[in-house]
Computed example of a mutant assay.
Amino acid sequence: MDRIRFEKAFESARLKVYRADRHRHEAEQWFSIFINSDFCRVVDDREGKGQSLSLEIEPVPIEITLAIGDAFHCLSSALDHAMSGLMEAKTGNSTRISFPTNVSRGALRQSFMSPGVDKCGRAKKAPPTRRIVKALPLLALDILSVIKPYQGSGSFLWEIRKADNIDKHNLIIPTLHITEIKGFRASQKVGRGRYNATITGDFTGQKVPMCEWTNVAPDFFEIDEEGQVTGKIAFADTMEVFAGEAVFPTLLNCVHSVTETLDRVEAVASRYL
Rank of each mutant, 00 (worst) to 15 (best):
Q110Y: 14
T91D: 13
K148R: 04
D263W: 00
N165K: 08
R46W: 12
A234F: 05
S104Q: 15
F72S: 11
L108I: 05
F99V: 00
I132Y: 00
D44I: 06
V190M: 14
Q206D: 13
F156M: 08
D164M: 09
T214P: 04
L139C: 01
F184V: 15
K182H: 07
C254L: 02
A9T: 05
R96P: 10
A140Q: 00
P127I: 01
L176P: 00
L66K: 05
D2R: 02
L75N: 03
N253M: 01
S104I: 15
R22L: 06
E7A: 06
I33F: 09
L139Q: 00
T198K: 10
K125G: 10
G69W: 06
H25C: 06
I178V: 10
G244I: 07
G92W: 14
I132R: 06
S155L: 01
I172F: 03
Q151K: 05
G201I: 03
S270H: 08
R194P: 06
V216F: 00
L138N: 12
R109C: 10
A123E: 06
T214A: 11
F10Y: 05
E222M: 02
G121Y: 13
S114W: 14
Y18Q: 14
S32D: 09
Q188E: 14
G50A: 11
P115R: 06
A27T: 05
R41E: 07
P174H: 01
F248H: 03
H177D: 06
G121C: 10
T198M: 00
F39P: 07
D118H: 13
F203S: 07
S270Q: 12
D167C: 11
G121S: 04
R130D: 05
R5N: 13
S32T: 12
D237W: 12
I181P: 05
S84K: 13
F6N: 06
T129S: 15
A13L: 10
T95Q: 15
G85H: 14
T204N: 10
F242W: 02
W158Q: 01
V190K: 12
K189V: 09
N36V: 02
S187A: 09
I233E: 00
T95L: 13
Q51L: 03
Q110N: 13
A140G: 14
W213T: 04
N253Y: 03
I62H: 15
S12V: 01
D263Q: 08
M239E: 12
T175D: 14
Y18K: 15
E26P: 02
I233G: 09
P128V: 01
F184N: 09
S111K: 02
M1E: 07
F31E: 06
A135Q: 07
E26C: 04
P218M: 00
K16N: 07
N93Q: 12
G183S: 10
Y150W: 01
N102T: 07
E225N: 08
R41K: 08
K125H: 08
E226W: 14
V60K: 00
E212V: 10
A269C: 03
N102W: 01
V229W: 04
A71Q: 01
E245N: 09
S111E: 11
